[in-house]
Nucleic acid binder design. Structure first.
Lengths: 99, 99
DNA sequence: AGTCTATTTTAGAATTTAATTAATTACTTA
DNA sequence: TAAGTAATTAATTAAATTCTAAAATAGACT
């Protein structure tokens, strides 16, 4: 059974908002392949590591991203299948290209 | 053929951003059933009509929403199937409820 | 302990966003 | 043409977001 999206707009809007920043969407794209450290993300996404951490925090607080610590590396990953499905849907819908 | 989402993050992030406000997501939900006037939207979404118009403008500028004028009513509607599919995906993913 | 590396946290300024109110436009109808 | 309705635009203010730079934390290594 489903509840209407209308009953959950606040939650869903907050979730979308946490994903709708170029740096954050870039991070999510990177994490599709599996967990990465802030340093690995920074090597691909050109901004400061402080900035990467801040954006990771926003998504962590929203529940998009999980972290685990190992030595002095912190590995971040997409926290659940739903987020991954959403990202894949975005790609299918908006990145289709004619050959 | 697909291009990677990574090549389109700026565009997709901007699109998501235009949808990730509670009032705007509420408007999109309402428009799933078909076009509505600002007045009709206002009767369901409790805010001023100026505010409704402003949010409609944001989505219109982003290409989510189209408008047509008839007499002194302006009917707004979801501009394309992709947006509708995305909204339905959000509902399926995040509004599923156990019976 | 001291140093190095990886990361996070904090504080600040600059920018953007959002809501409110008032004024304006466009159309209809008496 | 004047009044009424629907919607938009503009201006203001308040609030939230973002980036930068500096300081702080945590673990690894010597």
């Amino acid at each position: 059974m489903k509840t209407d999206l209308e009953n959950n707009v606040d939650l869903v809007a907050a979730l979308l908002k946490s994903m709708s920043h170029p740096v954050r969407l870039r991070i999510l794209c990177q994490l599709r392949d599996g967990e990465k450290t802030a340093g690995e993300l920074q090597s691909v996404i050109k901004t400061t590591n402080a900035n990467i951490t801040q954006h990771l925090n926003i998504m962590r607080n929203q529940g998009c991203i999980s972290s685990r610590k190992e030595a002095n590396y912190i590995y971040s990953s997409i926290s659940n299948q739903k987020i991954l499905t959403l990202i894949n849907t975005l790609q299918t819908l908006f990145c289709e290209k004619e050959k």
